[in-house]
Structures are given as C-alpha cells and as structure tokens.
Computed example of a mutant assay.
Amino acid sequence: MSLHVIDPVRIGTEELPGGRQLGWAEWGPVDGVPVLLSPGAATSRHLGFGGDVVDGLGVRLISLDRPGLGASSPHPGRTFGDFADGIRAFAALRGLGRPLMVGNSQGAPFALACAAAGVVGALAVVSGADEIAAPCFADALPGELRRLVDLAVADPAAAEKVFAGLTPQTMWDMVMSGSPECDLAVYRQPAFEAAYRRALDEAFAQGAAAGYARDTVLAMGRWGIELPDIAVPVDIWYGEKDTGHSPDQGAGLAARIPGAVRHLVPQAGGAVLWTHAEQVLSTLLKRAPAS
C-alpha cells in the first residue's frame, strides 16, 4: 500500500495560561471540522495522517505536541488531568468549541482523559496503548514489560529515569523489531520513514526526560481516568495483527467505556491510523454532536 505523507499546511505555537507553549500543526481547510490528534509515543506534531483525504472530508486536522515534546514547553510532574486542562485552554484560545479527537498509540490515554473531562465532543482511539498496569493484564505481559510496568506503578521517578535514557534511534529500532510485516511495509516506505524519523528527532529535541519519559510513566501506570464517566461517543480501532498495544486488542477497554464501539480491522496491524485514515475520520465525523 502506497501512502501519501504530506507536510503540514499550517504550523505554530499557542501560549497557554501560565506561559507554557503548545506546538501544533494543521492539515485541511481552516474552516473544516476541527479534529485534534494526540500522536503516538515520542513523535511530534509533524507526523499527521490522512493528508490526502482531509480536504475531501472537510476536516481540519490539528496535531499537538504534548508537553516537553517538539515545540511544547515541558511540564514536570504533569498528570492526565493537567493535559486535559491544557487542551481545554487551547481549544478555547483557538475558538474550536468542543473539537473531535483522535488518540494514537501512547497518545490514547491522553485523549481518553480529554474525553473523560468533557473537553472533546467525540473520540477515536486508534491502535491505543491500553492500561497494561490494570490487574486483568497481570499475567498477559512478557517479563521485561511486566518489570517496567511494576516500576512505573511503584516508583514513577525511577521509571522516568529509565525512560529518559531512550533516543530516537532506540524508538525506531523498537518499532521495527516489534511490528508485523504488514506494518513494516508501511514504515519502510521512504517518504513515511523520513517523516517518522523527523517526528522522532523533533520529539526528542528537548531530551527524553522533558517529555517522552513522563508520557511513558503515565501511560504504563494506573491511569486514574474515570472511563465509565465518559459521556461522548468513542470508537476504538485495532488491526487484527496488532498485539503490541493491547493484550486483548481493546476488548476490555471498550467494555469500560459506555457505548464504545470496537472495530477490529482485518489484515491490518498497528499502522491502522495511516492505512485506514479515511475510514477512521469518516466514522468520527458521524459521531460529532449536533451543532
């Protein structure tokens, strides 16, 4: 499958209350339906998706750098609630109302926090990192991952120090060694690899400790997000060959969110965000609240 990787058409930063900067990048018409993107682990705002379909769908895709990644200021000790507050402020400053949102991979729990806080009007979780510290997954994780999860729960500061040692190359190697062939066919495309590596380099520009390490401790620990209180439509997407993001491919996650709809995509892996962009966005648009 050949993918169109398109650079953002608009890019900038927004100053949040308190003075922190939030980096953003946009694709699609400026008057389109706002859809925020919480990107995957250690990637910057520059790695969007669906650049070839957003105009036709009337989507204004806005990819966001989480604190300490890319162009966004660090926010030491931040929580999921802090992130949701920042996105609420960003949406107000940009006049977005209650935008729609997509959370990919490690960006999923941050997006779920926004849904739980009522910041967004509907959510698509795509290849989402699950709450692997939940007791139901205690026997489902390989040994080294289990050790890291236990550390993130018991001693978050020590876990942050471990994750702070990672580099863009480490992340790339992890993705390439842990992905099924259907995903590698996407990631190895020269244009996609160049865009992915650029996003990794940008995300680590302030050092792993500033952003990625905190993200990972939050995502690997107990979330504390009130998933049963989510009152907006949620679609959960996994490729049937993706076993790395959720031990049960989101079945338990969907069961914890009232009304959530789970989609298991045949012959797909963790790259669903890019291989099925139009399907994800079209479904999300149907969930938008009536204006």
Rank of each mutant, 00 (worst) to 15 (best):
S2I: 11
D7F: 08
R10Y: 03
G19H: 04
L22Y: 04
G23Q: 08
W24C: 06
A25H: 09
W27E: 07
W27K: 05
W27N: 03
G28R: 11
D31Y: 07
V35G: 08
V35P: 00
V35H: 06
L36T: 15
L36E: 11
G40Y: 07
T43G: 01
T43E: 08
R45W: 02
G50C: 07
V53Y: 00
G56W: 01
L57N: 00
R60L: 01
L61Y: 12
L61M: 11
I62E: 03
D65Q: 02
D65L: 02
D65T: 00
R66L: 09
G68A: 11
A71L: 13
A71S: 12
H75C: 01
H75M: 03
G81P: 04
D82S: 10
D85L: 11
D85W: 05
R88S: 14
A89D: 15
A91L: 03
A92H: 07
G97P: 00
R98N: 01
V102W: 03
V102F: 14
V102Q: 08
N104A: 14
Q106P: 00
Q106I: 10
Q106F: 04
P109A: 09
A111W: 03
A111E: 03
A111G: 13
A111N: 08
C114W: 00
A116D: 03
G121M: 03
V126H: 06
G128F: 01
A129E: 10
I132V: 15
I132A: 13
A133T: 11
A134E: 13
A134Y: 00
D139P: 07
D139Y: 04
P142V: 05
G143V: 14
G143C: 06
L145K: 10
R146I: 04
R147G: 11
L148N: 13
L148H: 06
V153A: 11
A154M: 04
D155M: 07
A158E: 05
A158V: 10
A158R: 14
E160D: 12
E160K: 15
K161E: 14
V162L: 03
L166V: 11
P168Q: 10
M171W: 03
V175L: 05
S177A: 06
E181F: 09
D183C: 07
L184S: 05
L184D: 09
A185K: 15
A185S: 12
V186N: 07
Y187M: 10
R188F: 02
A191R: 13
F192S: 01
A194V: 01
Y196A: 10
R197W: 00
R197E: 01
R198D: 12
D201E: 04
A203W: 02
Y212G: 09
A213L: 00
G221N: 07
G221A: 08
R222K: 04
A231Y: 11
V232K: 15
V234Y: 11
D235E: 12
G239L: 02
G239F: 01
E240G: 09
G244T: 11
P247S: 05
P247H: 10
D248Q: 12
Q249A: 05
G250S: 00
A251F: 03
G252W: 00
G252D: 02
R256S: 10
P258F: 06
P258H: 01
G259M: 02
G259V: 10
V261E: 12
V261C: 14
V261N: 15
V261G: 09
H263I: 09
H263K: 01
L264I: 14
L264R: 07
A268D: 11
A268E: 14
A268G: 05
G270K: 06
Q279A: 13
V280K: 02
V280N: 06
L281V: 07
S282R: 15
K286E: 04
A288T: 08
